[in-house]
């Protein structure tokens, strides 16, 4: 009987060894360890043995069972491992192939520039004020100290709708309207929007373009506040190592008036084609709000003062991104707009 048992064990181990998949292995389990298997049969025949032999035999049978079971489980583990490896192999892909495209659109570069300016000033407590593109002559000119027949009206060739209405030539009428709305309260606003001038469209002119203006009115607003504010903006838009300089200028709605240059961001001031070899780039016009404008807006110009500035969004975008032709902003070529999809810095 012991002989028989050893033989069974050998047979079972050989079959386990030979099994190439989990199904075969299971057949081995059933065949040798199952209730109808030879080992169970042997156990059943133990009754015929002598009481002395019985425990000895019992222990032996158990040892064989355990050994076979152990081997069986080891083999299961090997086969499972193998199966996973096969699966992995089968599921392997070329990860260098392109991913599924995700359509992501983006903002127009002019919106990008405008929002950047808006966000800077929102952080400084400004509100965004907007107004109509078709304006009254009054708000566009007269309320800004440009009465009818004023020579400075020539600075801005205008599309008239009627004698009294026109396409706004700047976003300044929003300033005039805001002053009347705020009824004498101090305020800070940024006015972005579309504006229009009678120009033939070419590489540097566009009959429609976008402006961002700023206006602060309060008690004791100083020219140094204007300078500090412009410096903050220049550094934000063109880099923290930019310097600004102010030059005296003229706008009917401000007094004193200034133009602001920034140190050239390309050459740093040593002179290049971007700054026309001057080291400086003209960026915007600004000034202290003219007392007539304050008075027409309902503010006592003895008590209140203010500053205002105006920037062309196209000009900023052209400088910032190196765009050479203003018409690119209005042809809506996807190959142009989509270039402005990514973050910077």
């Amino acid at each position: 009987m012991e002989q028989q048992l050893k033989q069974l064990e050998q047979e079972a181990l050989a079959k386990i060894e030979a099994a190439s998949n989990l199904k075969e292995l299971n057949e081995v389990r059933v065949a040798y360890l199952g209730k109808k298997g030879p080992i169970t049969d042997l156990l059943k025949g133990m009754g015929k043995l002598s009481p002395e032999e019985r425990p000895k035999m019992g222990a032996l049978v158990n040892t064989v069972r355990e050994h076979v079971t152990e081997q069986l489980e080891a083999k299961v583990a090997v086969l499972e491992e193998q199966a996973i490896l096969e699966q992995l192999e089968k599921e392997s892909i070329d990860v260098t192939l392109p991913g599924r495209p995700v359509r992501v659109g983006n903002r127009h570069p002019l919106t990008r520039v405008i929002e950047e300016i808006e966000d800077l000033f929102l952080g400084m407590g400004y509100e965004i004020a907007e107004g109509p593109e078709v304006e009254k002559d009054y708000y566009n000119f007269e309320a800004l100290n440009l009465p009818k027949g004023h020579p400075a009206r020539d600075m801005q060739d205008t599309f008239y709708i009627t004698e009294e209405t026109l396409l706004r030539t700047h976003t300044s009428p929003v300033q005039a309207r805001t002053m009347l709305e705020k009824k004498g309260e101090p305020f800070r606003i940024i006015c972005p929007g579309k504006v229009f001038r009678r120009d033939n469209d070419d590489a540097t002119h566009s009959h429609q373009f976008m402006q961002v203006e700023g206006l602060v009115v309060g008690e004791n607003i100083r020219m140094s506040d204007l300078k500090g504010t412009l410096d903050t903006m220049a550094k934000k838009m063109f880099g923290s190592d930019r310097e600004i300089r102010l030059r005296p200028s003229f706008f009917p709605f401000t007094e004193p008036s200034v133009e602001m240059d920034i140190s050239c961001f390309k050459c740093g001031g040593s002179g290049c084609n971007v700054c026309k070899h001057t080291g400086w780039i003209e960026i915007l016009g600004a000034g202290m709000v003219h007392p007539n404008v304050l008075e027409m807006g309902g503010y006592d110009s003895k008590k209140y003062s203010g500053f205002a500035f105006g920037i062309g969004a196209e000009r900023i975008a052209m400088l910032k991104y190196g765009v050479e032709d203003i018409r690119h902003f209005y042809t809506n070529d996807a190959r142009f707009i989509s270039q402005f999809h990514r973050t910077e810095g």
Binding site: Y126, F187, R188, V216, G218, R222, K227, E255
Partner: peptide, 25 residues
Amino acid sequence: VEEIARLYGYDEIPMTLPEGMGNVG
């Protein structure tokens, strides 16, 4: 104001920011 400033030099104007007006924006 402008005459004085332009001949004194705009470069001499210091840089400040408007003093708080309680605007939330």
